[in-house]
C-alpha cells in the first residue's frame, strides 16, 4: 500500500481526494453514501455573511459531457452554519474546509474572522471566482490588484491554511496566481467553472434564468489541466486541481501536471461514491507504477 498522504499548507490530507464546494453539501449528504474518513477533505458549500436565496429556477442545464449551473451561492449564512451545521460535521474524520464568499473585501474578512472561532476548520478556500453572483465573486478573481487585495486582507486575520480558488475566466491565470501568492496565499485551487450559456432553440430562450452560468464536468477537463500545468510552472505553492475529474486516471493526470491534491465535483452528482473510488484508484496506480508515495507523481509529467 503506497503512502497517499499529501500536504496542503498546514494540513496533512490522508489522501489527495477532496470534494468540491457546491457539489457535496456540507458533507452530511455524502456521509449517507460513504465514510468521510476515506477521503482527504470536504470543501463545504459556499458560505456568505448573510443568508442568500441564490438565483431563480432554472439553475441547471445539461450540456455535452458537462453541465451549466447558476445556483448563485444559496446558503443560510455563517451564523446558521456555526450554530446548526458545524456542530454536526465538526467531528467528521476528515478536513472540513470552508468556502468563503463576499461582495466586498470587508465581507471576506468578517466571514474569515467568524470562522476563526471554529476550531475544526483547518483551512478556508477563498472563492474569488464564482461566476453566478452580481457583486463580488469572480469580479475579485479576474484582476491582479483585486485578487491580491482580498487575499492580503484575509491573510491578516487568518493564520490557518489559506487556499485561493482561481477563476479560469481570465486572460492569463499565471498572473493572478502570482499576485495571490505574493499576497500570502498558502495554496491554490483551480479551476472554478467556466462562464457558459445554453439556448433552447425551440423556445428561442436561454435555458438558465440568469442566461449565463458556470460550466463544469469532463467538457472542461483539458482547460483545467492546461491551467494547472501553467500555474505549476510559475509557482511553488501547492495546487488543488479541479475540473471534470470523473475517475482515478483523471485525478492522476492532474497530479502529473502539478496538482498536489484534487477536488471531485460534478462527478459526485452522477456517482456519489466517485471520491472513494478515485482514492482507491490512485493507490492502485501507484502500486502499478512502483511508487511508494503519492508525492512521487506530483508534477512528474515528462515533457522532454
Amino acid at each position: 500500500m503506497a503512502d497517499l498522504r499529501v500536504t496542503i499548507g498546514q494540513m496533512e490530507l490522508r489522501n489527495p481526494v477532496t470534494t468540491a464546494s457546491g457539489t457535496c453539501g456540507f458533507g452530511e449528504e455524502l456521509a449517507e453514501f460513504f465514510d468521510p474518513g476515506r477521503i482527504g477533505g470536504i470543501f463545504v458549500k459556499g458560505l456568505t455573511l448573510k443568508p442568500r436565496e441564490g438565483n431563480p429556477y432554472p439553475r441547471m442545464a445539461e450540456t455535452a459531457s458537462g453541465m451549466l449551473n447558476s445556483v448563485g451561492l444559496q446558503n443560510k449564512g455563517i451564523d446558521y452554519f456555526t450554530e446548526h451545521i458545524y456542530p454536526r460535521i465538526k467531528d467528521f474524520d476528515t478536513h472540513i474546509i470552508a468556502n468563503v464568499n463576499g461582495s466586498t473585501i470587508e465581507d471576506y474578512v468578517d466571514l474569515s474572522e467568524k470562522l476563526n472561532r471554529l476550531e475544526k476548520i483547518p483551512a478556508i478556500e477563498l472563492n474569488i471566482s464564482c461566476p453566478n453572483v452580481r457583486e463580488g465573486g469572480m469580479a475579485f478573481g479576474i484582476s491582479c490588484p483585486s485578487a491580491s487585495a482580498v487575499t492580503r486582507a484575509v491573510r491578516e486575520v487568518w493564520d490557518r491554511t489559506l487556499i485561493v480558488k482561481l477563476s479560469p475566466n481570465v486572460t492569463d491565470i499565471r498572473d493572478i496566481a502570482l499576485a495571490v501568492e505574493e499576497a500570502g496565499a498558502d495554496a491554490f485551487s483551480l479551476i472554478n467553472t467556466l462562464l457558459g450559456m445554453a439556448v433552447d432553440a425551440e423556445k428561442r430562450r436561454p435555458v438558465l434564468a440568469t442566461i449565463t452560468g458556470g460550466l463544469s464536468g469532463p467538457a472542461i477537463k483539458p482547460i483545467a489541466l492546461r491551467m494547472v500545468w501553467q500555474v505549476a510552472q510559475v509557482s511553488r505553492l501547492p495546487i488543488i486541481g479541479i475540473g471534470g475529474i470523473m475517475n482515478a486516471t483523471d485525478a492522476i493526470e492532474f497530479m502529473l501536471a502539478g496538482a498536489s491534491a484534487i477536488q471531485v465535483g460534478t462527478a459526485i452528482f452522477i456517482d456519489p461514491l466517485a471520491p472513494v473510488k478515485i482514492a482507491e484508484g490512485i493507490g492502485e496506480y501507484l502500486v502499478r507504477h512502483g511508487c511508494s508515495k503519492v508525492s512521487e507523481i506530483i508534477g512528474a509529467l515528462r515533457v522532454d
Partner: peptide
C-alpha cells in the same frame, strides 16, 4: 418535476420557491 443534477440535495439546482425560501 423540477430539473435535477444530483437528486440527493448537494447541487441545489432543483429549487422551488416556498414560504420558507428556496
Amino acid at each position: 418535476e423540477n430539473l435535477m443534477a444530483c437528486g440527493f440535495g448537494v447541487c441545489l439546482c432543483c429549487i422551488v420557491e416556498t414560504t420558507e425560501g428556496n
